[in-house]
């Protein structure tokens, strides 16, 4: 794998180059290349098995690529992962926080792991921003789905990350809570100039939040553009129709 201390594109916070991942009989990711500049929210879309989770897993270092290169904030993730992990964070419905620990205890543990300074103040500020005050000293396992999502978001923001990876951040939430979470993600990007990679199956969410959308199918990037550009390119009124056009090979871009 080529080693490079600097990103090819200096403006890119996340840079993925010619990334492949093969499992025994499956080519999960098949030569994808993309970069994400600072302060952008980019959506990663695709059907089940399109390679989104494997791609996010490779960016976080949970999955090792078969070949290719990933750089985050100028650090090669294959060799320098630990130089940059304290500047990143993530949220996913597929991981939990220890249920028997209270919210405050969980945030204390993760704050210490991420090297957060003045941790008590940081937890108090997050509790105020995310309205955790009523259940800060309740066990994580006793919370509702909406409360758990807010706590998971607090954990993802505990280190004030420059890069945030969100895997279906509003999965299984009621519309009101989901809207609240999306609003908070928007505020976070606006206030912190954070860079966010968002995997989601909720097309309304993607249209609302993302500056740019990467469409994946069978491990490959099949299209990319802003939600408005994709709608225009496919001649559709909503992103769900574009998603179905691509997933079912119904229709290619107009004029293609």
């Amino acid at each position: 794998m080529p080693a490079s201390p600097e990103p090819t594109n200096p403006a890119a916070v996340i840079e993925v180059e010619n990334l492949f991942k093969a499992y025994k009989t499956v080519q999960a990711v098949d030569g994808i290349t993309f970069s994400i500049p600072r302060g952008r929210i980019v959506g990663l879309l695709g059907g089940n098995g399109a390679g989104k989770t494997t791609t996010i897993g490779m960016i976080m270092g949970l999955v090792s690529p078969s070949s290719g290169r990933i750089s985050v904030l100028g650090h090669d993730m294959a060799r320098e992962r630990h130089a940059v992990l304290h500047r990143m964070n993530f949220e996913s419905p597929y991981v939990d926080m220890p249920h028997r620990l209270t919210v405050r205890q969980n945030l204390t543990v993760f704050g210490m792991l991420y090297g957060v300074a003045r941790l008590g103040e940081r937890i108090a500020r997050l509790a105020a921003e995310l309205a955790l005050g009523d259940f800060l000293d309740r066990r994580a396992g006793q919370l509702s789905a909406g409360q758990k999502t807010r706590v998971a978001l607090a954990k993802a923001l505990i280190n004030d990350p420059e890069v945030l990876l969100l895997d279906e951040p509003t999965a299984s939430l009621d519309p009101d809570t989901a809207d609240w979470v999306r609003g908070h993600i928007e505020r976070y990007r606006a206030d912190h100039d954070g860079t966010i990679l968002l995997a989601s199956h909720n097309m309304g969410e993607v249209e609302r939040l993302c500056d740019d959308v990467i469409m994946m199918k069978q491990g490959r990037i099949v299209d990319r553009g802003s939600p408005a550009a994709l709608l225009a390119r496919y001649g559709r009124d909503d992103l769900e129709e574009v998603f179905l056009d691509i997933a079912r090979d119904r229709r290619g871009p107009i004029g293609a």
Partner: peptide, 9 residues
């Protein structure tokens, strides 16, 4: 919780 730990510093 292992995913949280493996993706932490």
């Amino acid at each position: 919780n292992m995913g949280n730990l493996l993706m932490s510093p």
